[in-house]
Design a protein around this nucleic acid. Structure first.
Lengths: 121, 121
DNA sequence: CATTATACGAAACATAATGTTTCTGTCAAT
DNA sequence: ATTGACAGAAACATTATGTTTCGTATAATG
């Protein structure tokens, strides 16, 4: 699946294997291996390719776009959404959703403590 | 970046390295290499891991969140959805949604403190 | 306290993968 | 016909991964 997509993306960008290889810092043949599926690039190369072609790594690897819609939500996620919509909690979580990552990390740590205490006492 | 994310996702799912290794059909040490960054899994393994943790390969590889493109939700809801769709926060909020009211109250109070501190420092 | 089990990390080796070199073929352009 | 650009395939060299083995830390158990 991956090989054909790669080839198509390259053709669309009007690039030769040689050019792609130079961009990646490998030989033309090595890049050619990717396109005919005989070899697989490592993760850093995947990233470079995804960036170059401006696609997600998901698309390169699986060949599928991942548009997340509300119908894609799991039951747990739906439950959480309902929970978050609770008017009494709304402000609290709305604020958290907009907070900095460091503050969230603190919350996570504190939560661990509260959880443990709740079990033992 | 990839190794830490993998470890956190596993911990969130309460799995051991051994269990993950069995799931992938490799030894525990081989999987351990992924988490400490000394080895990188191939693409098919990446896919298996992404499926297992229910995240995109983009998130596993680059550590970026999924794109939320919902059209039926309000801006606030979209923000919250994007926020708690962050795979690493999943367990955290799942637990909170099921926790006792007293514990939530504590969280709210602590949150106030963290908020204020964030403003002043 | 000693012991057993669980979970994890690290070194060294065997194995499997990739990257390169070399050769071959195709297709335009001249 | 011939040259040059482009790309596929085989075989080897190189690099990576996966396994085995050993060691450490922690928690539970007698």
């Amino acid at each position: 699946m991956f090989p054909d997509i790669l080839k198509r993306l390259r053709k669309n960008k009007q690039k030769t294997q040689k050019e792609m290889a130079e961009f990646l810092g490998i030989t033309r043949q090595a890049y050619g291996h990717y396109e005919n599926g005989s070899r697989q690039p490592d993760l850093s190369t995947i990233e470079k390719l995804a960036d170059f072609f401006e696609v997600t790594t998901d698309y390169l690897i699986k060949g599928k776009e991942r548009n997340v819609t509300d119908t894609d939500l799991s039951d747990d996620e739906k439950k959480m959404l309902a929970f978050f919509k609770n008017p009494e909690l709304n402000l609290f979580f709305k604020e958290m959703a907009q907070s900095k990552e460091e503050q969230l990390e603190e919350m996570r740590q504190i939560w661990e403590i509260i959880k443990k205490r709740g079990l033992t006492k």
